[in-house]
Design a binder for these strands. Structure first.
Lengths: 145, 145
DNA sequence: TCTTGACCTCAACTTTACTCGAGGTTCTAG
DNA sequence: CTAGAACCTCGAGTAAAGTTGAGGTCAAGA
């Protein structure tokens, strides 16, 4: 079996900076054992954990949310495929929603910005949730939906 | 014809905070006339401009980029449909790329995080640009692609 | 006229996700 | 055993996109 990895080794093999690993540790995303000389040592599983973190980030999930999700992994034993699968289920839903939102936006973009309807109350871009006229003073731009 | 609008009116009708309008002005995204008493006054077209800004933001485009795009609008005359259309063309391409990236990520998420392949060199999530083995020391997580 | 609400500027603070540097320790190879 | 690489902590800095507050002015109704 390979031995434990130092921060520098983890940085090199994971592609994230040493400072980022420190940062992730401070944020509770990863943990490390310390040597007698106070240096960090990681098991090889750390690489998968970091890979998962980066994947989730690419999906647009904030670190705090990722940290919360990782906290649901089992303490003590090394997470197995089904543990990781559970995480990916949750993130997939998030990703689906994000894609849907962007796709809807794209489908409306040409027709809407270009045509002049932004000046009219019925424009779906101005009222992305179709909450038009529900109440309040005149047309408004609603929150990003 | 309606008269000009004050910041408060613009804020109310556009749904963005007054402080945000100040901020957009500082960033060059919008402009205003000043009254004798130094208060901001906007033509009604400002509402469309703000609507376009918010739409672009929802598409994930940073303000600096939006400002650059808005700067290509004609000086002097009020932008017409074809002016706005030109903007939306550029942003649509951006949006398409973003959607493609997220979709690819989603399609790989279950199969990849869940299955254990993150520990293997061939995993597309770890090597989103298929740059594996090109060089360098071992597997790495590449930049968000 | 007076008061209240809207407006003004400018500086400082917030959050997210990091990076950088200073000052000091540990580890490893020659 | 010593040089230099790698490591440590902690504080500060960065960028984006705003928000908040202090201190002061403007405008409209009673």
């Amino acid at each position: 079996m390979q031995r434990e990895l130092s921060v520098g080794e983890v940085a090199e093999r994971s592609g994230v900076a040493v400072s980022t690993l420190h940062f992730y540790e401070a944020r509770g995303l990863i943990r490390s054992r310390r040597t007698a000389g106070n240096q960090r040592r990681y098991p090889r599983e750390i690489l998968r954990r970091i890979a998962v973190i980066r994947v989730a980030q690419r999906a647009g999930i904030p670190l705090a949310t990722i940290a919360a999700a990782l906290a649901t992994l089992p303490e003590g034993r090394t997470p197995d495929a089904s543990d990781w699968q559970a995480l990916s289920q949750a993130w997939r839903a998030d990703l689906d929603a994000r894609i849907t939102r962007l796709t809807r936006l794209r489908d409306q973009l040409d027709g809407c910005i270009g045509c002049g309807c932004l000046s009219m109350q019925a424009c779906p871009l101005r009222n992305p949730r179709d909450e038009l006229g529900a109440e309040g003073p005149g047309p408004r731009l609603l929150d990003p939906g």
